[in-house]
């Protein structure tokens, strides 16, 4: 795709607007996404941080599941924290529904509660882990882009990407992760097809 990719941020709940300056600095156009029409307009999607249980209830309440499944099969998607949980094939603590787009196993709140939230650098860029999940296992074709204490925290397979940390809370634009994702939005890679029904 030439020019500015439209990067949609799922705008049902969570840290939505913080992505705007990152997306714009990475050369994309920011679009909050809430309706089926919005999903058609966007070239790529960020599932933001927030509460995964709340997002699941709202996706269900507004009948968005099929629209999202279709959109994610065709276009790049990046799940952050709660969003990573929505993309994972397997979710624990507790088990919950997900889009199963990335063959990873994720345990919710695995570092503990808010008192265990921390900030750390990835390649010189500070990021925040807030009541973060842990990626316990990844499928063989999943590329690990960053680790914390030997566990993957930033992964990618084809055009599907997940991070357990929040780069959007850092006010230095764009974050390396938003830059990577904007590149993906410009030239999507194959392999983001759902791993199977969930």
């Amino acid at each position: 795709m030439a020019g500015k990719p439209v990067i949609g941020v799922l705008a049902l709940q969570g840290a939505i607007q913080l992505h705007r300056p990152h997306i714009e600095a990475a050369g994309g156009e920011y679009l909050p996404v809430r309706t089926a029409g919005d999903f058609e307009r966007a070239d790529a999607f960020i599932l933001p941080g927030g509460e995964s249980t709340t997002m699941l209830k709202l996706i269900d309440a507004f009948g968005l599941e099929e629209t999202m499944r279709k959109a994610f099969a065709e276009k790049p998607v990046w799940g952050i924290c709660a969003g990573a949980i929505l993309l994972a094939e397997t979710v624990r603590n507790p088990e919950q529904k997900s889009f199963g787009l990335l063959p990873i196993t994720v345990t919710r709140n695995a570092y503990g509660r808010q008192l265990e939230s921390i900030q750390q650098e990835i390649g010189g860029y500070p990021v925040s882990y807030i009541r973060a999940p842990v990626i316990e296992a990844v499928g063989p074709d999943v590329e690990v882009l960053a680790e914390r204490e030997g566990q993957p925290v930033w992964v990618r397979r084809g055009s599907a990407m997940a991070s357990t940390f929040h780069p959007e809370l850092t006010l230095r634009y764009p974050s390396p992760m938003h830059r990577t994702f904007a590149d993906l939005a410009r030239s999507p890679l194959p392999g983001s097809k759902p791993a199977g029904p969930h």
Binding site: Q13, G50, T54, S128, L169
Partner: peptide, 15 residues
């Protein structure tokens, strides 16, 4: 960087 305490408040937005 937004501090880790306000970071949680950011995650609770629109809820």
């Amino acid at each position: 960087i937004i501090n880790i305490k306000t970071g949680l408040a950011e995650m609770l937005k629109n809820g």
